[in-house]
Design a protein around this nucleic acid. Structure first.
Lengths: 126, 126
DNA sequence: AACCCCACTAACCAAAAAGTAAGTACCGCA
DNA sequence: TGCGGTACTTACTTTTTGGTTAGTGGGGTT
């Protein structure tokens, strides 16, 4: 497992939040869990196309350590493990919403620009 | 310079925002520029204790490419370069505010926990 | 004369993050 | 008998990120 040397003295809130949310899939995991309430490992995996099992477990364990995620193991065969968000995790996801808005607006802007370029490229040469 | 292969197709807004804001000092740069309006290179450097010149230039160039920062060079001796935020940069900083709030609350919670542990450790043994 | 300041750039190196592939142990289905 | 599904773990490699050091060139300070 990755050593979590984190929790170093932060210089501001952004710092502390980024420490916890940085990781290729953590934003998406948060979203998935908030959206569905409870998810099993394989469900999450299917919900995050491209994630490897290693990264998914690693991120989930870190988020559990960070108090964002609850992991419940059922002693059954085949094994069943359920993940859900803590109150803090839900609060974090809510705090991420404006950032998501900003990003969506940005994507839209970029797509418009790309269409513009396409139009320009399709223009008949003089 | 680091190759910026970014702008890949994002799966959501968070994704797009994180792409642009991830980098050890970008949050702080955003904050400094929003706080002061205009900053010179050396002023930023002094405002971010511990940043290396290399990382500062690298981050500033990426943020310029990403349309968050304006870089103005004055052809003087000694050289003068001023940095400021675009509207999009200011909007991003605003969108980061709730995340900062969440982080500050979290830091406070952690400090309380640490004090609790200290108290427990300082308790007289029976 | 020696040093500091400005705003960088380049080369090299270390550390962290992420990807790949395989193995675990048990069950149900065909 | 072999495959797929359950939820992982381990070892190894690659990619990405950030840090260190040194150098530029003209000007001002001590």
């Amino acid at each position: 497992m990755t050593r979590s040397e984190r929790q170093g003295p932060y210089i501001c809130g952004i710092d502390a939040a980024m420490d916890v949310v940085s990781g290729k899939w953590k934003g998406l995991i948060l979203w998935e869990l908030d959206e569905h309430g409870i998810r099993r490992f394989a469900e999450l995996r299917r919900g995050l196309p491209g994630v490897s099992e290693k990264m998914l477990t690693q991120h989930l364990r870190e988020m559990e350590q960070d108090g964002l995620v609850i992991r419940t193991v059922y002693a059954e065969v085949p094994p069943r493990v359920e993940y859900s968000l803590t109150d803090e995790g839900r609060a974090l996801n809510a705090a991420l919403a404006p950032l998501g808005q900003w990003g969506s607006t940005r994507i839209r802007r970029q797509q418009i620009q790309m269409v513009d370029h396409q139009d320009a490229a399709a223009m008949p040469r003089p």
